[in-house]
């Protein structure tokens, strides 16, 4: 018997499951091999040490605690009891609460057209347009449609570009107008076009530009004859600008000025087109900004454009 064979049989020897010739061979090996004898002694001591760990008892009252858990109602049963018991108290209260909720829902439903009409009244009178503070149209709805979109704002986590830095003051001044315009759009939302446009305005206001881009694009594609298309295109360009997608922004500004040359949105579109070209390092930016200044020397964007021309268009 080899040492390996002998040591493989230690467990059987310990548990007295060996007999006959194997047992005799193992005993002879252990008598002759001092190393295996030492290993056998260590093996026995180790197993005995484990055995001496012995049994243990849980803390007093263990069985009682288990019984309590066994007898405790299950979670769903506790929930049902909590909701409905005692029946004669809770069921009438719940029935009354249900009736009140149903009545309140009915009232709200009945009054909702009136609320909508009330929202539309000040708009038709031009107050909404004044609140927006941009449009000069005669009617509130037209004012909302033609109102200038906010100046583009680049994402705060992106590296700043010169154009972004320059447009920041305008972004601050224009930002408060966004929620009001969104509210106006919601109030007049009566069809798919209105809903889509309101969603785009809302996402612009929340600076969720990627969603806004998709919504403006969908609006322009699905409602090409809508009076708000020029506004939507300017806002789409602004959203690209805010996402620092300057090439797409520049293309949108350019197509807006080409397709709607008489729109009151052209001056801001020209200034922003120039800023987008500047951000792209396009030499054409200088000409565009000069043209914008020629057309609208007193526009809010004019000082920034002059600074940019002085710094980058010698």
């Amino acid at each position: 018997m080899t040492c390996d064979e002998a040591r493989e049989a230690f467990s059987d020897l310990y548990d007295a499951t060996l007999s006959g010739a194997p047992l005799a061979a193992l005993r002879r090996h252990l008598e002759d091999c001092a190393a295996c004898r030492a290993e056998w002694t260590a093996f026995q001591r180790a197993v005995q040490a484990v055995a001496r760990l012995g049994s243990a008892e849980p803390s007093p009252g263990f069985a009682g605690r288990v019984r309590q858990r066994v007898e405790a109602p299950s979670g769903w049963r506790r929930l049902v009891e909590w909701l409905f018991l005692p029946l004669h108290v809770k069921v009438p209260i719940q029935a009354l609460a249900l009736l009140l909720v149903a009545f309140a829902g009915l009232l709200i439903y009945q009054q909702s057209p009136q609320v909508r009409r009330e929202a539309e009244v000040p708009q038709s009178g031009g107050r909404a347009a004044q609140e927006i503070g941009r449009a000069d149209a005669q009617k509130g709805e037209q004012a909302e449609r033609q109102a200038l979109p906010a100046s583009p704002r680049a994402e705060p986590d992106r590296p700043a570009s010169p154009a972004r830095e320059e447009t920041r003051p305008l972004a601050k001044s224009a930002a408060p107008a966004e929620p009001r315009k969104e509210g106006a759009a919601r109030a007049t939302a009566t069809g798919p076009a209105d809903e889509l446009y309101a969603a785009a305005l809302r996402d612009s206001a929340r600076q969720e530009h990627d969603r806004a881009i998709a919504e403006y694009r969908a609006f322009i594609a699905q409602h090409p004859r809508d009076a708000r298309v020029p506004d939507a295109r300017l806002r789409l360009a602004d959203a690209y600008f805010a996402r620092q997608r300057y090439a797409e922004a520049a293309a949108e500004y350019e197509s807006l000025t080409r397709d709607f040359p008489d729109s009151p949105l052209i001056p801001p579109a020209l200034f922003r087109h120039g800023q987008a070209r500047l951000a792209l390092g396009d030499p054409a930016a200088c000409g565009i900004l000069r043209e914008a200044l020629r057309r609208s020397p007193d526009a809010p964007e004019a000082p920034e454009a002059r600074d940019a021309l002085a710094a980058r268009c010698p």
Binding site: F10, F43, R45, A46, V47
Partner: peptide
């Protein structure tokens, strides 16, 4: 069981 005991022996030696 044998492998477990041998490992324990090695650890306790």
């Amino acid at each position: 069981l044998h492998r477990a005991r041998m490992e324990m022996k090695a650890r306790l030696t």
